[in-house]
Amino acid sequence: MALPSSGPRRRSRFSPLTRQVFLYLFCLIPAVSDIAQGMANTLGPNPVSVCLHDFGRWAFRFLLISLAVSPLKRFVGLDVMVYRRPLGLLAFSYAALHVVFYVGVARHFDVHVLWKDFTSRPFLTFGLLTFLILLALALTSTRRAIIALGRRWAKLHKLVYVAMILASVHYAIAFKTWHTEPFIYAAIAAVLLSLRLVPKAGKRTV
């Protein structure tokens, strides 16, 4: 089979939209699985906490994967651009589940506690800011928004780099001690972000 970058591309039997929707739904399996297990009471003594943390980690993973799409095209020649939007929306969806579980299920929508959480506890402030950025990007991910925003769209969506950094800090300082996993995620994020700094051939660097 020919690589996408070399030779004529095989036409898929499915339209890009169908493939995007399929990827999106397929990648929701971890969420469905957690919720199904939680309802069946097989997630252990604290199912809420398992879901909350799983959703957060999946949000981070999809953020990393969506940020790998353009370097994959540029440096590897693998063009999966068509999946970037559903991957970004997956990051947002898992982040939304993460936030809903925190605010609603774990904190019972207690406005007093939540206000204090988000204003005086740095790891939660970082988390909330990450979510607000992802929300803004998700809301402007429609074709209509892309056309309406024009050149400003690309600028706005560069905020995903900020989200990546905020999420890295949020995850790293969320524990009582330093854990290894957040640093692995942050290292991958750092690589993906620094690839953006590699000057493009034939273009003037500013």
Binding site: I35, G38, M39, L43, P45, N46, P47, V48, C51, V105, A106, H108, V113, K116, D117, R121, P122, F123, L124, I173
Partner: peptide, 24 residues
């Protein structure tokens, strides 16, 4: 006296509550 990173004003009761609502 809160922990710097979370409130100590209430507690989640392990073994009670449901997936969609913790017992506090």
């Amino acid at each position: 006296v809160d922990h710097p990173r979370w409130s100590q004003s209430s507690e989640q009761i392990i073994g009670e509550g449901s997936l969609f609502r913790t017992a506090r």
